[in-house]
Simulated scan of single mutants.
Amino acid sequence: MLLSRREVVLGGIAAAVLHAGEASAAAKDWFSGTAADNGFTYRKTNFSKVNPKWRRQVVKYYSSEPVGTVVVDTRHHFLYLIMENKTAIRYGVGVGKEGFKWFGRSTVDRKALWPKWTPPPAMRQRNPDLPESVAGGSPSNPLGPRALYLHRDGADTGYRFHGTIQPWSIGTDASSGCIRMFNEDVIDLYQRCPIGTATQVLPHIADQADRSQALADLDAGAPQ
């Protein structure tokens, strides 16, 4: 039996609605209850959904960087806070997608509780429907409960370590350059990193020789 055009259109709408409903239900599985923090409430991550390797943990880590330095391995989606005795706290992170990757050294020159999000002009040009800003604590604010602002030579690089409203993006290349963390993890990192904390974002390079050369060039300029 041939379907009428109206039946085909309605069928397509129904399928789209069903898919949206399934996607929404799947997203809800990533959260488990809520938590109060500094006057705001956020949805807690359902860590039973999270691959254990992305969970915060203390690991052996060998680095020439001083204790207290933050090192981000963008290729493997890990952020390390270097501790004593060749150990580090390792956090799973989401990093810049293709075309938005960067690397370099910087320092944490500003920190914010429940930061306001202001999309940069270039991002609004790519996505004209974005708002001019989103208030801190809003459920739609992509920065989550904390942001650590990365500067170099006193100038804002435009990059941050921050929380996320998309916990499923941790372990992927998903952002416009910033380093995403589980909300619980960015709260933890925020408490451990004073203003002035040194950071190093490693180049996203697979070849060891190229990676070594890139590391040697890190001090030559601002984050790339």
Score class of each variant (00 low, 15 high):
Leu148Trp: 01
Lys101Trp: 09
Gly137Ala: 12
Ser212Asp: 14
Gly158Glu: 07
Pro145Gly: 03
Arg105Met: 14
Met181Gln: 09
Pro120Ser: 09
Val93Ile: 14
Gly163His: 02
Gly196Leu: 04
Asp210Pro: 06
Asp207Leu: 09
Phe78Cys: 09
Asn183Pro: 07
Arg152Ile: 05
Gly171Tyr: 01
Val72Ser: 07
Thr199Arg: 01
Tyr159Arg: 10
Trp117Asp: 01
Asp153Asn: 14
Pro139Thr: 08
Gly99Trp: 02
Asn183Cys: 11
Ser140Thr: 15
Gln213Ile: 12
Leu81Glu: 05
Gly177Val: 05
Lys111Gly: 01
Pro142Ala: 07
Lys116Ser: 13
Ile195His: 10
Val186Ala: 06
Gln213Asp: 11
Leu79Phe: 04
Gly158Phe: 03
Ser133Ile: 04
Pro121Ala: 10
Trp168Glu: 12
Ser133Arg: 12
Asn183Phe: 05
Gly68Asn: 08
Lys86Ile: 07
Pro145Leu: 03
His76Arg: 15
Ile165Ala: 11
Ile195Thr: 10
Lys116Met: 13
Val71Asp: 03
Ala155Leu: 09
Thr164Arg: 02
Arg90Val: 06
Val201Ile: 10
Ile89Val: 15
Asn141Leu: 09
Ala88Phe: 02
Val95Glu: 06
Lys116Thr: 15
Gln200Arg: 15
Gly137Pro: 10
Leu148Cys: 03
Leu150Tyr: 00
His162Val: 08
Asp156Arg: 12
Arg160Tyr: 03
Val93His: 06
Thr107Arg: 02
Val134Gly: 01
Ser169Gln: 14
Ala206Lys: 14
Leu189Arg: 02
Thr118Val: 15
Thr157Arg: 04
Ala122Phe: 06
Trp168Thr: 04
Glu184Val: 09
Thr199Tyr: 04
Ala147Asn: 01
Gln208Ser: 13
Tyr91Ser: 00
Val186Met: 09
Pro131Trp: 00
Thr197Trp: 06
Asp109Arg: 11
Gly96Arg: 00
Pro119Asp: 06
Pro167Gln: 07
Arg211Gln: 08
Glu132Thr: 07
Gly68His: 06
Trp114Val: 05
Ala135Cys: 08
Ala209Leu: 10
Tyr80Leu: 07
